[in-house]
C-alpha cells in the first residue's frame, strides 16, 4: 500500500532519512521505531508531501510527488499536536475538513461520537484539553474513511490519562483493514497497535520484524529509564549501544528495554564507562497478547 524506495531527505545540515526502502502491505499496521531524530516524523511528512525528498514514494500505486492531492485523499493524518484554526468550533472544524476532503456532507455527530466527543460541537478548538484535541484530530483523520492512517507520535504531548483514552480508541482501529503507519518511541504503543516494526537509526532502516519480536529483542520484561548528568547522556547512550542495548534518549533521560534477568546490566555498562546513574525507574511492559 505504501512503497518507499531509496527515500532520502536532507535538512540543511543533517541527513534525516538516508536511502530508505520499505514496503507496507495493505491492511498492516507498521510502527516506525527509533529515537528522536531517527527520521520517523520525517518519513511521514515525506509521504504527505510536506517535505521535498529524493527517491520515490508510492501510495496505492500512485506517485506521491506527482499526485500529492490524490495520495492525501487516501490518507488520514493525526499530527503530534493538532494545529488548526483555534477559533473554530468543533462542529465547524469537522465540516471544514469534510469539505476539504471533498465529502458532500459530514455526519458531525457520528464523527465525534466515534472518538468520544459527543456534545462538544459548540466548543472552540482552543477550549479543548490536549487529549480532546487529539481525539478531535483522530475524528478529522477518520472523516471519509481513508484506507490509510498516518499517526505521528500522537500521544507524545498527552498526560497519562489522555494517552490512555486515545490508546483505547486507536486500539479499536487496528484490525479494521486499514493500513496504519505510525511513529512512536513507546513500546506499549507499538505492542498495542503494530503488526510489524521498522527500526530506524539516524535515518537508516536498521531492521524490520514482527512487533512481537520487538519484545524479544528488547527483552521480555521491562524498560529501564535512566538519568545521568545531562552532559554525560550521549556517552552513556553510546556505551549502552556498544554493549548491544537498544537504548534511546528522550527529554528526561535514557530509555533501555531490558530482558528479564539482565535488568541490572546497563548499570554495569555505565559503571565501566564511569558514568554515574543519578536516578532510575523500571517499567514493566505488557505483552501484545495481554491486550484485549
Amino acid at each position: 500500500m505504501i512503497d518507499l524506495s531509496h527515500l532520502s531527505m536532507r535538512f540543511r545540515r543533517s541527513v534525516a532519512v538516508n536511502d530508505l526502502s520499505v514496503n507496507i502491505p495493505e491492511g498492516t499496521a507498521v510502527a516506525l521505531w527509533g529515537a528522536n531524530g531517527a527520521g520517523k516524523t520525517t518519513i511521514l511528512r515525506c509521504i504527505l508531501g510536506l517535505l521535498r525528498y529524493r527517491g520515490e514514494i508510492r501510495v496505492g500505486g500512485i506517485d506521491a510527488r506527482r499526485h500529492g492531492t490524490k495520495v492525501r485523499r487516501l490518507i488520514g493524518y493525526v499530527p503530534q499536536e493538532l494545529g488548526f484554526y483555534d477559533d473554530l468550533r468543533v462542529g465547524e472544524a469537522v465540516h471544514l475538513v469534510a469539505r476539504l476532503k471533498g465529502l458532500r456532507a459530514a455526519n458531525t455527530g457520528e464523527a465525534l461520537e466515534r472518538v468520544g466527543l459527543p456534545g462538544e460541537q459548540r466548543k472552540r478548538i482552543r477550549e479543548l484539553s490536549g487529549g480532546m484535541k487529539q481525539r478531535l484530530a483522530l475524528a478529522l483523520a477518520l472523516l471519509g474513511d481513508p484506507p490509510i492512517l498516518l499517526l505521528d507520535e500522537v500521544t507524545a504531548s498527552l498526560d497519562a490519562h489522555g494517552r490512555e483514552a486515545l490508546m483505547q480508541l486507536l486500539g479499536r482501529l487496528s484490525g479494521t483493514g486499514r493500513t496504519i503507519l505510525f511513529a512512536s518511541h513507546r513500546e506499549d504503543e507499538v505492542m498495542a497497535l503494530a503488526d510489524r516494526v521498522a527500526v530506524l537509526d539516524h535515518g537508516r532502516l536498521v531492521a524490520t520484524h514482527a512487533a512481537s519480536e520487538l519484545v524479544d529483542r528488547l527483552g521480555h520484561g521491562a524498560t529501564l529509564h535512566l538519568r545521568t548528568a545531562p552532559d554525560r547522556a550521549t556517552s552513556a547512550l553510546d556505551a549502552l549501544r556498544r554493549s548491544g542495548f537498544v537504548a534511546t534518549l528522550n527529554g528526561v533521560g535514557i530509555i533501555v528495554p531490558v530482558p528479564n534477568g539482565q535488568k541490572g546490566a546497563p548499570f554495569r555498562v555505565l559503571a565501566e564507562a564511569r558514568i554515574a546513574v543519578e536516578d532510575f525507574d523500571l517499567v514493566q511492559t505488557a505483552h501484545r497478547e495481554a491486550q484485549p
Binding site: R45, L48, G49, L50, G68, T69, K70, R72, R73, I75, Y77, P79, E81, L82, G83, F84, Y85, V97, L100, K101, G102
Partner: peptide, 14 residues
Amino acid sequence: ERGMLAYLLALPVA
C-alpha cells in the same frame, strides 16, 4: 510556525 500549514497541506488540498 503553528504547524497549521502542515496540517492543512496534509489534507487533500493543493
